[in-house]
């Protein structure tokens, strides 16, 4: 079981590195789906209290929300935008892949240097990599669809931190957190559609009217 979990965490990290070079929008949806399924699987494997309430919550938080709702929602947003490719990157794809790999290496070195016996190193490495690469993708891409994707990748990373720490917050607080993230994605999707309608483009260079 441990071996399998290690393997899928590696698959998660590979999906992050691949994300750095992706240009086709539908590939983003596939990556989100894969990451959602991976997160569902590891969350299930790490479930400490196997009661119906916790099981239901994990199901909703990972499978329903991260593996089904988010990819479907993004697919809908992309379909409505009538775009197939993103608007471009500031740094070339192959250099981005190298940078993403370096970020994973840095995350690993950073986590290794912590020496904390309570910490699940594999999850924490994947989490820090996810946050760093999520931020990088958001900064490197000009398309605001990619900005939405980067937010979701960062959220996945934060979920993995929660997994790495073992303990968890009360279910009431966790539910509120999930509801917040859900609403944020909906509202960002709504404003994304408005931007597309107003500017007829999703390139961030269109959004430069506000200056001193």
């Amino acid at each position: 079981m441990e071996y399998l979990i290690n393997l899928i965490v590696v698959a998660y990290i590979v999906s992050l590195i691949y994300l750095a070079k992706v240009e086709l929008l539908k590939t983003y949806v596939k990556i989100l789906l894969v990451q959602g399924l991976i997160i569902f699987f590891v969350a299930l494997a790490e479930l400490k209290e196997v009661d119906i309430l916790h099981l239901m919550f994990v199901l909703v938080e990972t499978l329903v929300f991260k593996a089904i709702f988010v990819p479907l929602f993004m697919q809908r947003v992309i379909k409505r935008s009538k775009q197939t490719k993103n608007s471009g990157m500031y740094i070339k794809p192959y250099i981005s892949v190298i940078l993403a790999t370096v970020m994973v290496a840095i995350s690993f070195a950073l986590v290794e240097s912590i020496h904390d016996e309570h910490l699940e190193i594999k999850y924490f490495t994947a989490a820090i990599s996810s946050i760093m690469i999520g931020l990088y993708v958001g900064i490197n891409h000009r398309d605001i669809i990619t900005h939405l994707i980067s937010y979701m990748i960062i959220e996945n990373g934060i979920f993995l931190i929660a997994l790495a720490l073992g303990g968890e917050m009360p279910i009431l607080v966790n539910s509120a957190i999930l509801l917040d993230i859900f609403s944020t994605i909906l509202i960002m999707g709504m404003f994304f559609n408005k931007i597309k309608n107003y500017f007829n483009s999703t390139d961030e260079t269109e959004l430069t009217k506000l200056k001193d």
Partner: peptide, 23 residues
């Protein structure tokens, strides 16, 4: 858009801070 996006990223980063405290 800028406010919602950057705030969401900022608040997500703050949540990571809460989780570090939790660890």
């Amino acid at each position: 858009w800028k406010y919602v996006f950057i705030c969401s990223i900022g608040i997500a980063i703050a949540f990571a801070g809460v989780l570090f405290l939790s660890i």
